[in-house]
Computed example of a mutant assay.
Amino acid sequence: MSAHHQTRGNTDSPEKMLSMLLDGAVEVLDIAPDLHDTAIDRYGEVGTWLAENGSPGWEIHSQGSFLLGTVVRPNTETGEYDIDLVCKLPLQRESTTKEELKQRVGDQLVAYRRWKQRQGHTDGPESLESRRRCWTLGYPGFHLDVLPAIPDEDHPPTGILLTDKKLHKWQHSNPLGYADWFRARSELSRALLEKRLVASVAKVPEHHIRSTLQRLVQILKWHCMLFFADDTDNRPPSILLTTLAGRAYRGEDDLFTAVRNVLAAMPRFIERRGNQWWVPNPAHEEENFTDKWNEYPERRQAFLSWSNEINAIMDNLALSESKGLDVVYSQLVKSFEAGPVMRSFESYGTRMKAQPGQRLGATGLLSTTASGPLRKPNTFYGPHPGARS
C-alpha cells in the first residue's frame, strides 16, 4: 500500500517520508555519540600533551568532516572513522622546513605514547605511524590524523601551511575559516535554529544535532563512496562535494527536497577560468578544489557520471513513492546499502505502527525478500564500530 494513501489522520507527505528514510539510513553511518565523545576525550588529551610538552604556543584543533559534522563511516574492512587534527606551531616559514616541522610533532607524539604505556593506561593509542602529511594515532573504532602546520602569514588569522612529503611546496589550508563558512550555510535552515533552541533547554550537546545541510552532505558522500568503491583514484574528494553542496544549498528544511535541489544546482558553481576548471575554497579563494580535473580530465568525467547517477536515483525515488514502501525500499537498497537502509525502514515501521489506525501493506513494511539486485553487504555498518560481518 502506498504511504501516500495509508489511512491515518496525520499521513506523512511523500517528501517527508523519503526524507525520514534517507535521514535514518545515513544516521546509521554517522559516528555514534559515545564514540564521538571518546574521540573528543582522546584528542583533548593528545592536544594537552602537545601544548604542555611542546614549545610555548602550540595549538591543536580538529578539521575536516569531524569539525563540520559530516562524518560517514568509511567503506573499508575495519570501518574505522578518520578524524583529522591540526597541530599548529607558532613558527615562521623561513625558520623551519617541512621535514623538521613534521619530526618535531612526531617526536612529541612518540613521547606521549611512551608515557601512556609507562603509566599503564589502557586508553592510549594502539599504534603510531608516519604518513604522507600527518602522524596517525590508532584507537579502537577510529584513528586520529595529526597534521603538523604553521601559520600562513599571508592569510591571517586562521590560514595555515601544511607539510606534504610528496610535494615540494607548503600546502595552504584554512579549516577553521571553512568551518565558519559551512556553519553559516547550515544555519540558513530555520529548523536547525529551532532544534538548537530546544536542545539548549534540554541540554543536548549541539554536536549531536545534524542540520539538513550536514545530512545532505553525508548522503552525497555515502553514495559517492559506494559508487567509486572500485575506483578510488577517480572518486571526487569530500571537500569538493561539501563545497558544491554548501554553495547550492538554499535553506530547505526537507532533506529529500534539499538533496534534489542541491544536485540540480551544483553544476552552476563549477567555474571555467580560461582553460581551467575551478571550484574555489570559500575560505581561501586561491585554492582550487578541482585542480586535479585540469591535470586528469577523466576525474571530471567520473564526477559527472556520479552526478548523473545520483540525480537519476532521486528522480526514481520520487516516482516510486506512489508504488508503495516495498518499492521505495528496493530502490534504496539497489542504490545504497542493505544494512543502513533496513535499519531505517525498521525505525520508520515502528513509528508508523505507533500511529492510531495505521495499516501496513499485504507484504508488510519491511519485506526482507524485496526485489532488487542487492550489492554484497559492506562491513561499515554493524552493532559496533569496526565490526566485521
Rank of each mutant, 00 (worst) to 15 (best):
L263H: 05
P175N: 04
Y112W: 12
L325V: 02
F269T: 08
P373D: 05
S389E: 04
E77N: 02
L50G: 00
D152C: 05
S238P: 00
E295N: 10
L360N: 15
R351D: 00
R104L: 11
E99V: 15
W170Q: 11
D12Q: 10
L109H: 11
K16R: 13
E15F: 13
E129Y: 01
V217E: 05
G124H: 03
E45G: 08
D326W: 00
P280A: 11
A245E: 02
V327N: 08
D254N: 07
R273P: 04
E45Q: 14
C87D: 00
H172W: 08
V259N: 03
H121L: 10
P356R: 08
L365W: 13
L197D: 14
H284M: 14
I40T: 13
D41A: 05
Q358C: 13
C134M: 07
L216D: 01
K292F: 04
G357F: 06
V328W: 01
E295I: 11
G141D: 10
P175Y: 12
K102Y: 05
L220S: 15
G69Q: 07
N378A: 10
V198Y: 04
G382Y: 06
G124M: 01
L101W: 12
A32V: 11
G177E: 02
V28A: 06
Y81E: 01
L193N: 12
L304A: 12
D30P: 00
L144A: 05
E99H: 13
K165F: 11
P356Y: 09
C224K: 14
R299G: 01
V217R: 09
A191N: 15
W115S: 12
L162W: 08
K169H: 14
K16F: 04
C224F: 04
S127C: 00
E346K: 12
R375E: 03
S330V: 15
V86F: 09
I209C: 00
W135I: 05
P125H: 13
A229K: 08
T257A: 14
N53Y: 09
T379D: 11
H61L: 00
V279G: 00
V146M: 14
Q103Y: 06
M266R: 00
H155D: 11
T136A: 08
K334T: 14
E321V: 14
F345G: 07
W277V: 09
A3G: 07
Q218F: 03
M20Q: 15
